[in-house]
Amino acid sequence: MTETDTLPYRPCAGVMLTNRDGKVFVGQRIDNVLEAWQMPQGGIDPGEDARTAAIRELREETGVTADKVTLIAEAPKEFFYDLPPEMIGKVWKGKYRGQRQRWFLFRFEGEDGDIRIDTPHPEFRAWRWADPVDLPRLIVPFKAQLYRDVLSAFAAHLPA
Rank of each mutant, 00 (worst) to 15 (best):
Val91Ile: 04
Pro84Phe: 00
Ser152Arg: 13
Val69Leu: 03
Glu86Leu: 07
Gln145His: 13
Pro132Ser: 12
Glu78Gly: 12
Asp82Ile: 09
Pro159Asp: 12
Gly89Arg: 01
Ala73Glu: 09
Trp129Lys: 03
Phe124Ile: 06
Glu109His: 09
Pro120Lys: 02
Arg116Val: 06
Phe104Arg: 01
Tyr81Asp: 11
Phe124Gly: 04
Gly98Thr: 00
Ala75Leu: 02
Phe79Tyr: 13
Glu111Asn: 11
Pro85Tyr: 07
Asp134Thr: 15
Leu105Trp: 01
Leu105Met: 03
Asp149Gly: 11
Lys77Pro: 04
Gln99Val: 12
Lys95Asn: 13
Asp118Thr: 03
Lys90Arg: 12
Asp134Ala: 15
Glu74Leu: 05
Pro136Glu: 10
Gly110Met: 00
Leu83Ile: 02
Gly94Gln: 03
Glu109Asp: 15
Pro136Arg: 06
Val69Tyr: 01
Ile88Lys: 02
Phe80His: 15
Tyr96Gln: 09
Arg128Asp: 10
Glu74Ile: 07
Ile139Gly: 14
Asp149His: 11
Val140Trp: 10
Arg116Leu: 05
Pro76His: 01
Phe79Asn: 12
Pro159Asn: 13
Lys68Val: 04
Asp134Tyr: 10
Tyr147Gln: 15
Arg125Glu: 00
Lys77Ile: 12
Pro76Ala: 07
Ala160Trp: 09
His157Ala: 12
Pro136Gly: 11
Arg148Pro: 07
Arg116Gln: 10
Lys77Gln: 15
Thr119Tyr: 05
Glu74Gly: 04
Gln145Val: 11
Pro120Ala: 03
Lys93Phe: 08
Leu158Asn: 13
Pro76Arg: 02
Arg148Leu: 14
Asp149Pro: 04
Ala160Lys: 14
Pro120His: 05
Phe154Pro: 09
Ile115Asn: 06
Arg102Glu: 13
Arg125Tyr: 05
Pro141Ser: 02
Pro122Ile: 03
Lys90Ala: 13
Ala130Met: 10
His121Phe: 09
Phe80Ala: 13
Ser152Gly: 15
Met87Cys: 10
Arg125Trp: 05
Ile88Met: 03
Pro141Cys: 06
Phe80Ile: 13
Phe142Asn: 04
Leu146Lys: 01
Leu146Ser: 08
Pro76Thr: 00
Gly89Glu: 01
Val140Lys: 12
Trp92Met: 11
Ala155Ile: 14
Gly113Ser: 15
Phe79Arg: 13
Phe154Gln: 06
Lys95Ala: 11
Leu135Thr: 11
Asp112Tyr: 07
Gln101Thr: 09
Thr119Glu: 00
